[in-house]
Computed example of a mutant assay.
Amino acid sequence: MAGTEHLTVRREGATLVLTLNRPESRNALSLPMLVGLYDAWLEADADDGVRSVVLTGAGGSFCAGMDLKALAGAGMEAGGYRDRLKADPDLHWKAMLRHHRPRKPVVAAVEGPCVAGGTEILQGTDIRVAGESAVFGLFEVRRGLFPIGGSTVRLQRQIPRTHALEMLLTGRPYTASEAQRIGLVGSVVPDGTALERALDIAGRINACGPLAVEAVKASVYETAEMTESEGLAAELSRGWPIFDTADAKEGARAFAEKRDPEYRRA
């Protein structure tokens, strides 16, 4: 199973739980964390037993963004992390979900700070739950920097443009309730319960037909920038084959027999 000293991985049923694990640094991104994330996304894609992924952070924080000192610091070479980055210069962008989209649904469970690179990774997730005290924001412009993790492209496609521009151009923090109001997160729950809610959502996903779930997710993203007519045609090309699967027949039988379906990804 994937994982590094800054990224823990565990299985909870059919859910792969990824935990950013540098609580002393509010889970700021480091090279071991990025390598661990990339390997975990690949593991989730390759393992048909994994039906969903939950991404969270240790110690009451989600992610405070990039830790430049950690990326430049000594001691990382011993673990082969720099060799990994040298072999694949795009690895960090894949880890941050800028250049990689997992085929399994990804649910984010956010507690505490989720800022800068944290908010950028968040935009690569599919469903988002936040604790009441979570804080969001893209602070880069306040430091004369650019949010190069994809936010100037993705944010305006996920929330209204006026809100996206305010977040990008002011660099101010947003509360969880504000983030929910503008559509950046879907649910706000009592502090300390975001992971519980995320696992509940993941469990509901896991109970559905895995081929159908993956096809639905792929169709949503594939058709996002198409015209309506193009999108409807693409939807049919992905959707019709699902009706011919054994899983689809099992779902209908289970409904008729008043029992839980047993999907076999077939």
Rank of each mutant, 00 (worst) to 15 (best):
D45I: 00
E120F: 07
V17E: 11
A246D: 15
E140L: 03
V129P: 09
S133Y: 08
H100Q: 03
R197Y: 10
V189M: 13
L18C: 09
E178R: 13
R253K: 12
K249Y: 08
I205L: 15
G186K: 12
I182Q: 05
S229I: 06
R11T: 02
V129W: 05
E43D: 11
D48I: 00
F243M: 10
T152I: 11
L165M: 15
D45F: 02
E111C: 05
L168C: 04
E77P: 00
S151V: 02
K69A: 14
L232F: 13
I242N: 11
L122K: 04
G149I: 04
G150L: 10
L184R: 03
L138Q: 01
W240V: 14
A109E: 05
P241C: 04
A256G: 00
D67T: 00
C114K: 02
P89Q: 02
M66N: 05
S151P: 10
P241W: 09
A44Q: 04
G231M: 07
I242W: 13
L138P: 02
D39S: 04
P173Q: 02
Y221I: 02
E235P: 00
N27T: 01
L71F: 13
E77L: 06
P160N: 01
V216D: 13
G80V: 06
S133G: 03
T162H: 15
E230S: 09
L68R: 10
A212S: 10
D83L: 11
P241Y: 09
V135I: 14
P147I: 02
V17Q: 08
S61T: 06
V35P: 07
Y38I: 00
S237Y: 01
E222Y: 08
T125L: 08
P210F: 09
L18S: 03
E77R: 13
L145Y: 07
V53Q: 08
S219Y: 09
R181K: 14
S52T: 11
K217H: 06
L55E: 01
G118F: 03
E120M: 13
P241D: 08
L29M: 13
R22E: 12
I148R: 13
A179G: 14
V54E: 06
R101T: 12
V110D: 07
P102N: 06
V189F: 11
T19E: 15
G186H: 14
Q123E: 15
M76S: 11
L7R: 06
G144M: 07
V135L: 13
P173M: 07
I127E: 11
T162R: 14
P210L: 03
R161A: 12
M96Q: 11
K69N: 14
G231K: 03
